[in-house]
Design a protein around this nucleic acid. Structure first.
Lengths: 140, 140, 140, 140
DNA sequence: GTGGTCTAGACCACG
DNA sequence: GTGGTCTAGACCACT
């Protein structure tokens, strides 16, 4: 399966899908010209209705990130996601402000940061071995 | 005024109110026995319907953090918010993971962190002088 | 009722709604700040599901033509529809080309044109008396 | 090549094919007894799947305009297309009404009309020289 | 097989 | 009262 959704989140599922896909693009896991999973297949994978995935794809489409290929599905159109990084960084800033306001000490945040950086380095090593799972069109 | 709401956020307004109040408690700005602003006053201050504030207070009430004092309003019942800090820290962890996944470099995150730590120290000093800025939509 | 939909058309209903509303704006029947009918009310009026109207409103919203007013509905944000006229004129051009290609004589087209201009002048005279019907918010 | 398809249109491709062929008939470019291009050839020419052309031919067939000649393809059965012109003219009327409603001045429409009449006369002369331009997607 | 449109109805958030 | 999100399922168009 491709990714997971937090159904208890206040963020709408379709927005989460949009974001997850943008992460894939930013990571280079999806490249220009790649096919995305079909709306119905992805919907089944993550356990939502196909309309929800469809809505996410439409949003990505109007953003110019993906493009429909008549009768064949969606392909990645661009990898130009500079604004995305800015947006994510602004979220980081916001949450850190909140934490400090809530009385979390900077040291605790640094501790968490180091913990995550360590873990993520590990993740990025193991990520490559997962890449075969995503090659859609394999049975085509 | 007390705080402001992000109306463009996916987080429901009443949840934001709950959280802001918990921050006040965690900061020590609200102490056991203190009165909270009346539902209608807070509603006017932050520019929302009183039902929304009411819902937030109800939630804090069922969490056992505040308590209704018949005919007088709500008072703070407990300052026991240890879980809140943990929860906020877990959000920090989550967002940092997301940023790293999105290709943000650890250095960029550190930069933002240092920026915020600096700003926040300043903000807590100047917070009181900002309070007039938030009175909006009062003539509605 | 506000307008009617051609259900036998190949143009999706939600696109027809978008267009009809843009016509209202271009005609000046809807002015900046006016409330649009609620999604559910308009849906009932024209006999479609509210999701269909919702989709139309969302499209107008991302186009920047209408804007949501929290808890109150959509209001008209702009009357700047210069591109709309261009688009409509290009449709006129296209259909005239098709007609000529199909062997329709220019004279026949002129005849139709004069017929319609005559009728439309009559319509625009009687239009003013219809305008009260559209004032939503009346029961507010 | 024979004609082109507007893939961004809401009108289904097979309907566009039907219409284009009826235009050919109305223009006298196709005469009773003429063979139509084979399904596969036309499909390749205009860049669509052969099923789509097949559906168009079926529709023309049930309309009684073309007829299958077993083992040889489709031939034009009738040139009796009086209703077609009426239908096209009614589309012209409809679009002119829409344009006037949208605030387009009659003068602008006349301008477009004259422009098209001029261009079309030119186009029908130059049509043959354009035929190479439409071979696209051939390497697919 | 692919996506697109629409419906009917549930549940949530805001005023 | 307002809009927003999601589901389950039908039907259409295209490859």
């Amino acid at each position: 399966m491709w990714f997971s959704i937090d159904f208890s989140s206040h963020v709408p599922v379709y927005k989460q899908i949009v974001e997850k896909i943008m992460v894939k693009v930013a990571q280079g896991e999806l490249k220009k010209g790649d096919f995305l999973p079909s709306v119905r297949k992805l919907a089944e994978d993550i356990g939502v209705n196909f309309n929800t995935v469809s809505r996410a794809y439409k949003e990505l489409s109007t953003m110019g990130i993906i493009e429909i290929q008549r009768g064949e599905g969606y392909i990645l159109k661009t990898e130009n996601l500079k604004d995305f990084n800015k947006q994510v960084l602004s979220e980081v800033k916001q949450i850190i402000k909140k934490a400090l306001n809530a009385g979390v000490s900077p040291e605790e945040i640094v501790k968490v940061f180091e913990e995550v950086v360590g873990r993520e380095i590990y993740d990025s090593k193991s990520r490559k071995s997962e890449q075969k799972l995503q090659s859609k069109k394999s049975g085509k």
